[in-house]
């Protein structure tokens, strides 16, 4: 058994964990998703060695896209150091042997849960989203046969009624995340759910954006420079908002903030959700001060 145990872990799996047959199926789905931006392509989702809800869709899409030369970054709500991000990063280190990084600028493939990095992406990058519910109409119409037909007929009245009822009841559209968008003027799609602050970054992005939903077995995509519009009304326009505060660590007014409860006396602080952005900015400021 010594010869077996001395095998490096990357040699005891196929590259990037999945078998080649599965990757071919995923790759065909990804190409069709790119050809029809916003349309959800069904795929034969596999069981992964992690529970549904932990990014099994994103992991399968990443596995189909990774090359040995890639440098991988994984973020969970913007952070590189939370359990989900660390475990997925380690998974690909062990099964694909790829380099990893926490720097947005140094990554060629970024898998993300619920955020788009603050640092603008480039043409040399691929952003893979983990998606829990890919169907934006699902909470309005539970039947898959009906939502599929609604997409086919471009019948999105139900979504507009939902947004209108929000305004009638609450005075504004209440989504703070998962604000529905229209991809290239044809398909309403969910932005995975990212905070609405990130919605404008979906549009005209130089990077390839891929969305994987493992439990729901759907892949959708946005090619680079695709026009993505957040649904709204002329008299209630979409506004990308965030906490009206500066980051308590790096002082940024531009980045999306997490509110952190610090004690049970009502103490709290606001910090960047993007840990790489915050850390890089803090280090630069510290260097400036000497």
């Amino acid at each position: 058994m010594t010869s077996q145990t001395s095998l490096r872990e990357t040699e005891s799996y196929n590259f990037a964990y999945l078998d080649e047959q599965t990757k071919r199926m995923l790759r065909r789905a990804i190409l069709k998703a790119l050809a029809v931006p916003g349309y959800q392509v069904p795929f034969a989702s596999r069981e992964m060695p992690m529970p549904y809800g932990w990014g099994t869709g994103g992991v399968q899409v990443s596995a189909a896209c990774l090359t040995p030369e890639d440098r991988l970054k994984v973020i969970d709500q913007g952070a590189d150091d939370t359990t989900n991000a660390v475990s997925i990063r380690k998974f690909f280190q062990r099964t694909a042997g790829v380099e990893v990084t926490e720097a947005t600028t140094g990554a060629t493939l970024i898998q993300t849960r619920h955020r788009i990095p603050e640092t603008p992406l480039t043409e040399d990058q691929i952003l893979v989203y983990q998606v829990p519910i890919p169907e934006p109409l699902r909470f309005l119409e539970p039947r898959e046969t009906e939502t599929r037909r609604m997409h086919a007929l471009e019948e999105y009245g139900l979504m507009h009624v939902k947004l209108y009822e929000d305004i009638a009841r609450h005075g504004e559209i209440t989504n703070s995340y998962a604000w529905p968008v229209m991809a290239e003027g044809r398909y309403v799609m969910t932005p995975s759910p990212i905070p609405k602050f990130d919605n404008p970054k979906l549009s005209d992005n130089p990077a390839v954006q891929l969305f994987g939903a493992g439990r729901e077995a759907r892949i959708h995509a946005l090619p680079p420079y695709t026009k993505v519009v957040s649904l709204d009304f002329e008299d209630h326009p979409f506004v990308a908002s965030k906490a009206d505060h500066a980051c308590d660590i790096c002082g940024s007014h531009e980045s999306y903030l997490d509110e952190v409860i610090t004690d049970d006396q009502g103490g709290r602080m606001f910090v960047c959700s993007d840990t790489d952005f915050c850390g890089t900015r803090s280090a630069a400021l510290a260097a400036e001060r000497g």
Partner: peptide
Amino acid sequence: HPAHDAARAFRAAMQALAR
């Protein structure tokens, strides 16, 4: 090398179709 060659080739094909 099936896994590596296919991965690199898919990247090229994906970039071609996406752009």
